[in-house]
Each structure stands twice: as C-alpha cells, then as structure tokens.
Design a protein around this nucleic acid. Sequence first.
DNA 1: GCCAACGTTGGC
DNA 2: GCCAACGTTGGC
Length: 139
Amino acid sequence: MAYWLFKSEPDVFGWDDLVAKGDAGEEWDGVRNYQARNNMRAMKVGDLGLFYHSNIGKEAVGICEVAAEVHPDSSTDDPRWECVDVKAVRPLRQPVTLETVKAEPRLAKMALVTSMRLSVQPVTEEEWAVMMELAGESA
DNA sequence: GCCAACGTTGGC
DNA sequence: GCCAACGTTGGC
C-alpha cells in the first residue's frame, strides 16, 4: 500500500467537491505534468492520499482513496495524459497546514516542501504517520 | 498582485 | 542535444 498527496485549488475543486462525489469518486483529470502522471501510474486501488488545498488554506484537509487505477484523461484527446479516480474517505480531525509541515523536522524531505509545485506527490510511510499524528488521528 | 521556481517548448 | 524563452504554479 502506498501513500500520495493530491493538490487542488479549493476554488476550482476542493475537498467539499470531492465529498459531494461520494463513493463514485472523481476523475483526477487535468494533470499535465509527467512526474505527476507517473505517480498516478504507480497507484493501486485502495492506496490512500492526503487532499491538500493550495493557495487558499494551504493545508491538508482530508484523506482520499484511489478508486480506479490509471486510465486515459477524458478531459483531453492527447494520449500522453492519464489519470486515476479518487474518492473522499474522511476529513482530517485537524487540518495540517503547510506552516506546520515546514516546521516539522521529520517532514523536511517531504515533496510538499521540496517539490512544492508538483501536483501529485508520493508520501512515504513515515511521512504519512507523522501527518496523521499532526492531524490528531490516532495511529 | 507580485515574483520566484520550475517545467516545457522550440530554435539552433 | 543544448539552452534560452516562455508559461504556469503557488507562496507570500
């Protein structure tokens, strides 16, 4: 089982929008970055991800799950772009802000800090555990 | 709204 | 294949 981080601007597509999609989930389309796409290619159904709000909030707000493995991105005819489907699992008890992440030494190597602009990022098991701790989630 | 960082594109 | 130009992202 792997862990990921999905970034989205909440005024375009936020956590509430994902929750509204229910169990069917939502196609994570529109990614036009090879690294992000490669990360999605590596995903398996059931993998968990943090849902992060960029620009507004700048915090991880919820846990989502990969609902469907990689398939062509229906928002483009360009065959290079593929995406997965994600669905909301539950909100974090306490959102984890970027500020908190940056202040946490154990998260210094997290992609959110080192590759800030990457929209779909891998999260290590250790980082995930620290994030859960910061979010007030019991292990 | 600004600006820095970074990825992508296109000319050579 | 290199590198400069450009566009986009995202924090501040």
